[in-house]
């Protein structure tokens, strides 16, 4: 119990850590934006689209929600080359994240869409709006308002879960930690620092999302 903390030994690696931090942030932002777009399309297909499309989406959602993220990631990075689809670590990481968040957000957004009173949809249709116009102008806004907190939590979960991409050598924050620890063996310091970084990142994301929500849904 007389371990002496030596944070100074991490200093020479500040650029590695910074690169990893930026990678994790960009990975989270891109997969959030694209993943929610995928989720919105998926939820729309399941609720407003033709039955066959809804069933395809349902299979996608169940496949992703019932398998570990790391297996999905390995399948994309190590498995797909067998079919001739060779992706870089970075591309594979982004793709896996989008596919994963896309599935979860499909379910979350679908719940929001289904919570919109049927009468609002009928009112829109009675005003000669098409199904898609009703979805866009009447349903989605209300749906997102309802599920925004759930979606925010999912974004944080995905951000923290992104640490897994270090396993295919995508150069995120966790990868940086592994890299540094394997060189100076300051495991305690480096993982403590990185844990703190994730903690701060998560708290910051949460407050940012909350502020963003207040701006987007200021009405009412």
């Amino acid at each position: 119990m007389s371990y002496k903390l030596q944070f100074a030994e991490l200093l020479p690696y500040w650029n590695v850590l910074l690169y990893g931090l930026v990678f994790t942030i960009v990975l989270t932002i891109v997969s959030t934006v694209v993943g929610i777009a995928v989720g919105t399309a998926g939820a729309a297909a399941r609720t407003f689209g033709p039955g066959w499309l809804g069933r395809i989406v349902a299979v996608y959602v169940e496949l992703i929600r019932n398998t570990p993220f790391i297996v999905q990631l390995f399948f994309i990075f190590f498995g797909l080359p067998a079919l001739g689809l060779k992706l870089s670590e970075t591309t594979a990481a982004f793709l896996a994240m989008v596919i994963n968040l896309g599935a979860y957000s499909t379910e979350i957004i679908r719940a929001g869409i289904e919570a919109v009173p049927k009468g609002h949809i009928e009112a829109g249709l009675s005003l000669a709006m098409s199904k898609w116009e009703v979805l866009r102008h009447i349903v989605l806004n209300q749906a997102f308002r309802k599920i925004y907190p759930a979606l925010s939590s999912q974004i944080i979960i995905v951000m923290l879960g992104s640490a897994v991409v270090s396993q295919i050598s995508a150069e995120d924050l966790t990868y940086a930690a592994n890299y540094i620890a394997s060189r100076n063996f300051r495991n305690f310091e480096v993982y403590l620092l990185v844990a703190l970084a994730y903690l701060l990142l998560a708290m910051l994301t949460r407050s940012l999302l909350r502020a963003l929500g207040r701006v987007i849904f200021k009405a009412r």
């Binding site: 009468g119 609002h120 709006m129």
Partner: peptide
């Protein structure tokens, strides 16, 4: 139906105003 509904309006028991 869209063309039809442009000429046939409807008002509901539950108002169904869009809350946003």
């Amino acid at each position: 139906l869209r063309e039809l509904r442009r000429h046939v309006g409807m008002v509901f028991q539950q108002f169904n105003l869009f809350p946003h």
